[in-house]
């Protein structure tokens, strides 16, 4: 089973997680830029974070046979802090980088005017850079938040078909689906969705354009939730092809809208002997984990 986790904050996770994820079948991940728990106080703090998502974290992931891409943005929560908002001016130089496969996470947290401005601005940045957008839907007042998000997308230069609406649930999935956007579900212990409810949503709305992620971060979360959903789908009578569509081909198709998704293994073949080490794969054992592009 091959798994693509389209939303996970590996910066907050350990190497044990990488190992367990690889063992569970995870071969590719996307790490969206988000809030660190501790508020940032300047754009420089974002620069170091973005650099880490473009440097150290892909290196760490490669050591465990996992391909790492990222999405970059000013997150909704910190869009409200005037000390952080100037990072919007620096985003263009980051959005040209090879491993950036979307603008994100953007969207609403408390639905403030500052969040309106940041969302509008960053939807435009996505359109300008030929990137899709990963849009977080708020945890509080969710349905109103989804509607306001859909209005912002409709008013932007970015077509809904290039938007992934994330953290959806039973109350928001129908309107999100009607918009033509891609549908993201975060499966998280205690909050957000769980495996059982996820399977029910897949039964009712089908697997087309549905992406499932663990959204694992520094909170109580589980980086293996993608695999647990796959197992729950199989137990509920979905077949292997449905599982592959939701856990691999859909995320590949969405992030391929960027034209930048590269699912080649960190190292292949004997002609690059030594190179696997240089690119971060383990020195012994299964150094290369070739990942076939599925769509």
């Amino acid at each position: 089973m091959r798994i693509f986790d389209p939303h996970i904050h590996m910066t907050s996770r350990t190497t044990d997680d990488y190992e367990a994820m690889h063992a569970a079948g995870v071969r590719a991940i996307v790490e969206p830029a988000f809030w660190l728990g501790q508020p940032r106080t300047s754009p420089a703090s974002f620069h170091d974070y973005f650099d880490s998502l473009l440097g150290w974290e892909p290196f760490r992931a490669a050591q465990y046979g996992i391909t790492h891409h990222c999405t970059l943005a000013l997150n909704p929560k910190e869009a409200n802090d005037p000390r952080c908002a100037p990072v919007l001016d620096d985003l263009p130089r980051y959005l040209v980088k090879d491993q950036v496969v979307a603008v994100g996470e953007i969207g609403y947290d408390s639905m403030t005017p500052a969040e309106d401005t940041a969302l509008e601005h960053q939807l435009q940045l996505a359109a300008d850079h030929d990137l899709p957008a990963l849009v977080h839907t708020p945890h509080r007042d969710k349905l109103a938040g989804l509607r306001r998000t859909l209005d912002a997308v409709a008013a932007s230069a970015l077509p809904a078909e290039r938007v992934l609406l994330d953290h959806l649930n039973e109350t928001t999935v129908e309107e999100a689906k009607d918009s033509g956007a891609w549908l993201g579900f975060s499966v998280y212990p205690d909050t957000k969705m769980d495996e059982r409810r996820m399977v029910a949503v897949l039964r009712e709305f089908g697997p087309e354009k549905v992406l499932v992620n663990s959204a694992a971060d520094w909170g109580k979360s589980d980086p293996l939730k993608t695999r647990k959903v796959a197992d729950a789908m199989l137990a509920a009578g979905f077949d292997e092809d449905d599982v592959d569509l939701v856990l691999w081909r859909n995320p590949v198709a969405f992030y391929s809208l960027s034209g930048r998704l590269r699912l080649t293994a960190p190292a292949t073949g004997p002609t690059h002997e030594g190179n696997s080490i240089l690119r971060g794969a383990p020195a012994t054992g299964t150094a290369a984990h070739p990942v076939a592009a599925g769509a």
Binding site: V252, A253, S256, L263, T264, T268, R279
Partner: peptide
């Protein structure tokens, strides 16, 4: 649709 390249970066350029 995925950009698949001929090989990995060699890191030896």
């Amino acid at each position: 649709m995925t950009a698949v390249h001929a090989g990995p970066d060699t890191g030896q350029g």
